[in-house]
Structures are given as structure tokens and as C-alpha cells.
């Protein structure tokens, strides 16, 4: 056993609670439906009802994960790493996206999907800060990044909403893969546990 084996296991138990990612993906899709005013989402009440459902689901998931996989509190060093990813990395990505394509006079105005690019980069940054580089993140969010970088997106119109959809789907797929890894690695109680319960 190397020390990294146990520290990685601890990180995986904490961050592979992927059903939260599924909820995050659904939230992005809900946002795009609200933006587009599609069907019942033409009314704000439908959007807020969807938010309430996702919020309730998050509480249920939190309880499920805590009871099945336990609770831990991150170290201060970990909080610092996350703070760098969120408060330095995320703004850098945001301003980078404005430079690539926005209404700003200094924008390069490229036909890219900056929402897809930004979401992919931010999620990849956060995953490196928490569990390290993982192949399924590289594939899922790398695909999202590549899709955003294709020079096919219209500067106005529905590109933003399409970016939200794509990011939402990527989060759902990534979340399901995370959850599968969590269950396979830390899965159901062993026979000795069941006998002793």
C-alpha cells in the first residue's frame, strides 16, 4: 500500500457522489428550457417548481450518500485548492470566454460556444483539484470542450442554450460514471459486516 492509495480512496469516496452531478446537469437543462420559454417553462412558476424538485432530490441524495458511504470534513489545504480553482480559475475562464466571443468591443468574436468551453474547463479544473485527472472526465468533458471549439456556432441566437444543454448532458453522463465507480469501489457491505450488523 502506498500513502497515495488511501488518500485517493478518501478523495474518491468524497467526490464520486455522482448523482449530485446528475442533478447539476438537470439544473443546466432546466435553465436552458427556462431561457427558451419552452412549453410549460414559458411560465416562471414551472422553472421554480423544477428548482424545488431538484432541491428536494439533493437533500434525499445527501442523506443516502452520508448513510451509505459516510461523512468527512475536508482539510484547510483542500479548501484552499478548491478556492483557487473556483475564485482564480473560474474567473479566468469566464474572461477568456468573453475574449473569445462576446459583445465586448475587445472580443475576438469567434464562432465558438463559450458556455460549453467554460463549463468543460471549469469542471476539468475542479476535478483535477479534487480527485486528479480521470479518463472518464477527459473523455466526457473533453468532448464538450471540443464541441464548443468547433467554429460552427452562431454568435447570437440559441448557441448559449445549446451550450447549456450540452453541458447538462455531459454532467449527467459524468455523474452517472462517477456514481458507478463509487458503488463498484466502495459498494455494498461485505458478509462480515452484514453478519455483525
Amino acid at each position: 500500500m502506498k500513502p497515495q492509495d488511501m488518500t485517493i480512496a478518501a478523495a474518491e469516496n468524497t467526490y464520486f457522489r455522482g448523482l449530485f452531478g446528475v442533478l447539476g446537469g438537470l439544473l443546466l437543462i432546466l435553465s436552458s428550457l427556462g431561457n427558451a420559454g419552452w412549453g410549460p417553462f414559458d411560465h416562471d412558476v414551472a422553472f421554480f417548481a423544477g428548482l424545488a424538485v431538484l432541491g428536494a432530490a439533493a437533500l434525499v441524495l445527501n442523506r443516502y450518500y452520508n448513510e451509505r458511504y459516510g461523512r468527512s470534513r475536508p482539510t484547510i489545504r483542500h479548501h484552499r485548492r478548491m478556492a483557487v480553482a473556483m475564485f482564480v480559475g473560474a474567473p479566468a475562464v469566464f474572461f477568456g470566454s468573453l475574449l473569445l466571443s462576446s459583445r465586448a468591443s475587445w472580443s475576438l468574436n469567434l464562432p465558438l460556444n463559450t458556455i460549453a468551453i467554460s463549463m468543460a474547463l471549469i469542471i476539468l479544473m475542479v476535478s483535477v483539484a479534487t480527485v486528479g485527472v480521470r479518463m472518464h472526465y477527459v473523455v466526457v468533458f473533453g468532448t464538450l470542450l471540443v464541441a464548443g471549439l468547433l467554429p460552427i456556432w452562431e454568435r447570437e441566437g440559441m448557441s448559449g442554450n445549446t451550450g447549456l444543454w450540452m453541458a447538462g448532458v455531459a454532467l449527467i453522463i459524468g455523474g452517472l460514471l462517477d456514481h458507478r465507480l463509487l458503488v463498484r469501489k466502495f459498494g455494498p457491505a461485505r458478509e462480515e459486516d452484514r453478519a455483525g450488523a
Binding site: P3, M6, T7, A9, A10, A11, N13, T14, N66, E67, R68, Y69, G70, R71, S72, R73, P74, T75, I76, F186, D193
Partner: peptide, 14 residues
């Protein structure tokens, strides 16, 4: 060493 604290179930699973 990699967490500030953890409960019994977390330690057992990990």
C-alpha cells in the same frame, strides 16, 4: 491525514 475528520462509515467504506 487527508481529511479533517471522518465518521465510522466513511472509514469503513474507504
Amino acid at each position: 491525514t487527508s481529511v479533517a475528520e471522518a465518521d465510522f462509515v466513511f472509514l469503513q467504506r474507504t
